[in-house]
Nucleic acid binder design. Sequence first.
DNA 1: AACCGTTTCAAACAAGCGTTTTATCTCCGA
DNA 2: TCGGAGATAAAACGCTTGTTTGAAACGGTT
Lengths: 232, 232
Amino acid sequence: MLAANSRQSEHPPVDASDETRARLVEAAGEVFARRGYRSATIRDICIRAQANVAAIHYHFGDKEALYNHVLRDSLKTALKQYPPSAGLSDGANARERLRAFIRSLLFRTLDDGPAACHGQLMLREMAEPSPALDELVRQGIRPLYELLGSIVRDLYIEYSDGRPPAPRAVRRCAQSVIGQCIYHRLARPVLERLLPDLKYNKNEVAELAEHIAEFSIAGIAHCARIARRTRR
Amino acid sequence: MLAANSRQSEHPPVDASDETRARLVEAAGEVFARRGYRSATIRDICIRAQANVAAIHYHFGDKEALYNHVLRDSLKTALKQYPPSAGLSDGANARERLRAFIRSLLFRTLDDGPAACHGQLMLREMAEPSPALDELVRQGIRPLYELLGSIVRDLYIEYSDGRPPAPRAVRRCAQSVIGQCIYHRLARPVLERLLPDLKYNKNEVAELAEHIAEFSIAGIAHCARIARRTRR
DNA sequence: AACCGTTTCAAACAAGCGTTTTATCTCCGA
DNA sequence: TCGGAGATAAAACGCTTGTTTGAAACGGTT
């Protein structure tokens, strides 16, 4: 398993211009997303990538290393395509920043285009964490979580007359926001069975984002006002 | 696969008082929840149930049939333990009914006690639907979804001056509620890494339910008031 | 005690899997 | 032209898996 392999000094040849390698990562992303880590077979991946089964060992070492590459790669791609503060002017207020955060999170997790397996991969990581989740949280999720926390805190302060909010209250409101967004990726199979004419095109997702933003702002404002009353 | 097996007239001997069968279902629930359908091995299940590997073929037919039994069984158990209208008096108003719904949903999905694998199994079904999901939605999820829909509709009407609400608006609010609840089961691995001192004991879950209810009532009220303004 | 349907058991089977091996191909510099 | 490193290919290996087999154990009835 962990025995140093004898052929190369390092698993990934740092050489650039590696066509097969890129094809493998892309194909693996689709297969891992569709079937899950365990059910995905390297044979299936290699057929899609038009490569030999041995190519995975040659380029990545083993299946798990390939999976880690795919996970990192898909997160980077998704964050580049849907940055968390997309289309936001510099002096945007908390409400606008929350809207932008929600919109980008929704688009990022619901995107189903080819090679956009990020949402499904993340979902699987949460349903069944792999050793790669630790790094994923540290480098990908924690920054987003803290960004949302600061947005919610600003909103919260706004509605509680400048009083510093309890971290626990802010955290719960932030979780309410994320929950509403991620739900649509998670429950998609159920919602499709419940509402057969369900669609997630660009317009629908944008409207959904608007709803979640309105719903959440009202919720945060309400929680802040309660806090103002009870703390006085 | 589907060939009629030649030994018995029917796979499940309808005989009651079958001890091994019950042990198998219980052990299988734990293993399927922990490892997932694919990664769970019938050998592991049978060791935990102190049974022979052939027992699964004898009692259920095959692995998939066992899984379907486990799924149905865990849903039934969870709904019995946490009924969606627990502790609700007959003339309860919409706010109280929403609170009860949220509380029971949270407890049902977050319960981790032995043989309470319902939450994790459902999560896995949503991350990777199996053929059993269709029936699960029809018999388990749809009734809950419709119950929540009627509660939200009542609340909505209350805040929009008796005007009949748009089904789409009600649906979105209901999804916002469910999303906030299910999130905590889904994101548990992430939240544990983000907030190392996270606990989900009875008190915490009850407080969480209270937060989600307050947050949601404010959100629904806000959406209803917007509708009242724009429809006039 | 003999019988018979039900249940359990140890062992084997066949398929699929990740991985490894060994050989071949492809360039490019000497 | 040769040599050799990088990359690909086909085949096989060893292991785990779900399933099946055929016999043994059990328990009640005649």
